[in-house]
Amino acid sequence: MSIQHFRVALIPFFAAFCLPVFAHPETLVKVKDAEDQLGARVGYIELDLNSGKILESFRPEERFPMMSTFKVLLCGAVLSRVDAGQEQLGRRIHYSQNDLVEYSPVTEKHLTDGMTVRELCSAAITMSDNTAANLLLTTIGGPKELTAFLHNMGDHVTRLDRWEPELNEAIPNDERDTTMPAAMATTLRKLLTGELLTLASRQQLIDWMEADKVAGPLLRSALPAGWFIADKSGAGERGSRGIIAALGPDGKPSRIVVIYTTGSQATMDERNRQIAEIGASLIKHW
């Protein structure tokens, strides 16, 4: 067993022997301040990774656009098919120029040779490549099948209805392509620590998230040296922004954090800054 596999296998073990965790309302004060600064709703939840206990939450059962955070769930569904012998990570998928959609920095470079399922998941999570996500959605049967996968996990809230990039439209009061912070946090925890996926697939999923290259201005910008984070960000229309993450000190994750916002007129930089400040408060009061 590799060191990384050992780390993920012992996530519940280490967490069980940690000192009790206590909620700190100071972080919620910052979440509410972010709402004021952005002029928009902000949803927040913080779960203990081992027990699933909610440590703090704000608007945990209000719907927010998922945006690209759905790509972690998508690759979880792909990995479940791999575990069941219905898919192979090494299978190569070929596609054409007509398949390319807006923001496809990886797939646009491989029109000639195609990409493997493993490479597509890596591109979808680490670079948020939209064509990679659409190609992977095709392998599982489309958005409705991802929703069905989530329902089978016990998540009857999260739903995907459309493809990239239309799913980022974020129309107010439109339930399409949305989740709730509580539902997303619980589902992410199941994917990373539950028995739904094999140990190898859980490790692969967290490795992809740990290698995320496009979430630097968010929670990662607030992390002290030595902290662990595996995350996936999302951005959408109407001032929408979000991030889902597993993080913790001492090089291992111990909490799940989900943050979503929508309806702001603020710039992307300002949305990023507010999420980073929430992260800084979380870490300060850990």
Rank of each mutant, 00 (worst) to 15 (best):
A280K: 15
D33Y: 06
R271W: 14
S104R: 14
S51G: 05
A148F: 04
E108K: 15
T158G: 05
S104A: 12
P172K: 12
L55M: 10
P25H: 15
P143A: 10
D99S: 11
G279R: 01
R63Y: 14
K71N: 00
R92E: 14
L49Y: 12
Q265M: 09
N50W: 09
S80Y: 10
V31W: 02
A225P: 11
L73A: 10
S104I: 02
R273C: 08
D83C: 08
Y260V: 08
D155H: 01
V42Y: 03
T126P: 03
L49K: 11
E87P: 02
G142F: 02
G216P: 07
L120V: 05
A148N: 08
V72W: 02
H110C: 06
I283M: 14
L150P: 01
E61V: 14
A124Q: 03
R241Q: 12
L188P: 00
A230L: 10
I125H: 03
Y260H: 01
T69F: 01
L28S: 04
Q88G: 10
V257R: 01
N173Q: 11
P172V: 10
V117D: 01
P105W: 10
S264R: 08
C75N: 02
E62S: 06
G234C: 09
V29A: 14
D99F: 08
R202K: 04
H94W: 06
Q204R: 04
P249D: 07
I93D: 02
L55E: 09
W227M: 03
Y103K: 03
F58Q: 11
W227R: 00
K109H: 13
M115L: 04
R59M: 14
Q88K: 13
D155V: 01
L160S: 08
P172C: 13
E26I: 15
S122P: 03
V31Y: 00
E166S: 13
P253H: 06
R41Q: 09
L136C: 09
G43R: 00
I171Y: 15
M127G: 11
E61P: 01
L49G: 13
L197F: 14
R81W: 10
I54F: 11
P143V: 07
H156V: 12
G43E: 00
A182T: 13
T139S: 14
I256C: 04
E175I: 12
A170E: 10
L79V: 11
L73W: 03
K232Q: 01
D231G: 11
E102G: 07
D83G: 08
A84H: 15
G248H: 12
K284E: 09
F228K: 03
F70S: 09
V157Y: 15
H151P: 05
S122I: 09
K109L: 13
C75P: 00
Q203N: 03
C121P: 01
M67A: 15
A123N: 06
R271P: 12
F149I: 14
V101C: 12
E237N: 13
A34F: 09
I278N: 02
L47Q: 11
K213R: 04
D36G: 15
A77H: 04
R118S: 13
R162S: 09
D231I: 12
I278E: 01
L74W: 01
P165L: 09
S128D: 01
M184A: 05
S104H: 03
P172D: 05
S68K: 00
K252W: 07
D207P: 02
A133L: 01
K144S: 09
I278A: 02
A132Q: 02
E56L: 07
R92N: 14
G279M: 14
I93E: 12
W208A: 13
T107F: 02
G216A: 12
F228G: 13
K30I: 07
N134V: 09
D83Q: 13
E56V: 07
I256P: 01
G216L: 12
A245Q: 01
L146S: 02
E62T: 03
P105Y: 11
N168G: 06
T261R: 06
I283W: 13
V101W: 04
A266F: 03
D48P: 02
I229C: 15
L247E: 02
M180Y: 14
Y95W: 12
L136S: 02
W286L: 08
Q88P: 08
H285P: 03
V29N: 10
K284W: 12
I256G: 03
L55G: 14
S122L: 11
D177H: 00
S233W: 02
D207I: 12
A148K: 09
L79Y: 03
K252D: 15
A132G: 12
P224W: 03
P172I: 04
G39L: 13
L167K: 00
F70L: 11
E195Q: 13
M209Q: 03
E61I: 06
T186E: 15
A84V: 13
R271M: 14
L146H: 03
R271D: 15
M127V: 10
V101S: 07
R189A: 13
M115E: 06
P165K: 15
Q265Y: 08
S80R: 13
R255D: 00
R63C: 14
T158R: 00
R176F: 12
E46G: 08
I206A: 06
G85I: 05
M67I: 09
A40G: 07
T138Y: 15
T131Q: 03
A215V: 15
N134F: 03
T267S: 08
A200T: 12
T112W: 15
H110T: 12
I275H: 02
D177P: 00
I275A: 03
Y103V: 06
V258R: 00
V42D: 00
T262I: 03
E46W: 11
T138A: 12
V157R: 09
L49Q: 07
I140M: 11
E210K: 10
V214H: 13
S281C: 15
T27S: 14
P181T: 09
K71S: 00
L196I: 14
D250G: 04
A276N: 10
P253N: 04
V258P: 00
E175C: 05
R159H: 11
K53H: 13
L111A: 11
E119F: 02
E166A: 12
H285S: 08
A280M: 11
S51Y: 11
T147R: 06
A124G: 12
R162P: 01
V157F: 04
A84E: 05
T126K: 09
I259T: 06
Q97E: 08
V78R: 00
K32T: 10
V157M: 06
P165D: 14
G251W: 10
R273A: 08
D36L: 13
W208Q: 04
A222L: 14
V117H: 03
E119C: 15
T158Y: 02
G242T: 02
C75A: 06
V82K: 06
A183G: 12
T178Y: 02
E237T: 13
T179C: 03
G279P: 00
L120P: 01
W208L: 13
Y103R: 10
S281D: 15
G248F: 02
D36F: 15
R41T: 14
K32E: 14
N272L: 02
S264V: 08
D250M: 05
S68N: 01
P224E: 04
V78M: 10
R202D: 03
H110W: 15
A276F: 09
E62H: 04
I125M: 05
G76V: 08
A132K: 00
I278V: 14
R63N: 14
G242M: 02
K190M: 04
T139A: 14
I244P: 00
E175W: 11
G154E: 09
W208S: 03
D99H: 12
V42L: 06
G242R: 01
G85D: 09
L135E: 13
Y103L: 07
R202Y: 05
S104L: 01
K284R: 13
Q265A: 10
N130L: 01
E62G: 09
N130A: 03
K144A: 06
L120H: 04
Q88Y: 14
I125V: 05
R271Q: 09
S80A: 09
A170L: 05
V257T: 09
E26C: 12
E62W: 03
E61Y: 07
N152M: 12
P172A: 11
S221Y: 05
V42Q: 02
M115K: 05
H110A: 14
M268D: 11
S128Q: 01
G43D: 00
L188F: 05
A211E: 15
I278L: 14
